[in-house]
Amino acid sequence: MEKGPGVSNTDDNDTSSNGTTRRGFLTQITYAGAGLTLAPLLVRTKNILPGAPPGSAETSTINLTVNGQKHALNIDERTTLLDALRENLQMTGTKKGCDHGQCGACTVLINGRRINSCLTFAAMCQNSEITTIEGLAKGDGLHPMQEAFIKHDAFQCGYCTPGQICSAVGLMNENHVHTDADIHELMSGNICRCGAYQNIVDAIKEVKNIA
């Protein structure tokens, strides 16, 4: 379920001056609008959130290694890796966009390879090293791809950015990029509604040239 204000210390829960958190606010407006056009969306979303689904759920205790840290979780078997990260571990850096593997906002690295966490059951990731956007920086030192995204202004609203950066890091690991066209093709699994594509390509080229 959505956590209320002050549940965790992640960025989405930063408390504003009037005591409302960003996530808390989003939750409130979601419920306020639920009787209107958002109703079908809300029903679908609730179905896939841990803690809320209908029917008698199969639950199990699983172990996930995220950014080098081991976590034991008691979860509904239906929980995707994306929901486990966001809702169970409160690691909200990984974003939920389409939730159907079409937008790339949920991209994380599994054993160094980029995947869509929305199409992966958390219980199937127990023997893997999962790296999220929160795990790329080393202490206060940003990952070179994060530095490059900032330097080249490779985002506007920022919602797709964690997925873009994780995907770009995966792209570097794969080592199949030779031209700009290769970057366009091999980043096609990440959609940017703001259209920051050219700057994203510039950021990736910068990291590639350093490497």
């Binding site: 980029r114 995907s167 980043m187 699994g189």
Partner: peptide, 9 residues
């Protein structure tokens, strides 16, 4: 076919 993420899965 698909995207790099999906091809990795």
């Amino acid at each position: 076919g698909a995207s790099p993420q999906i091809r990795n899965m």
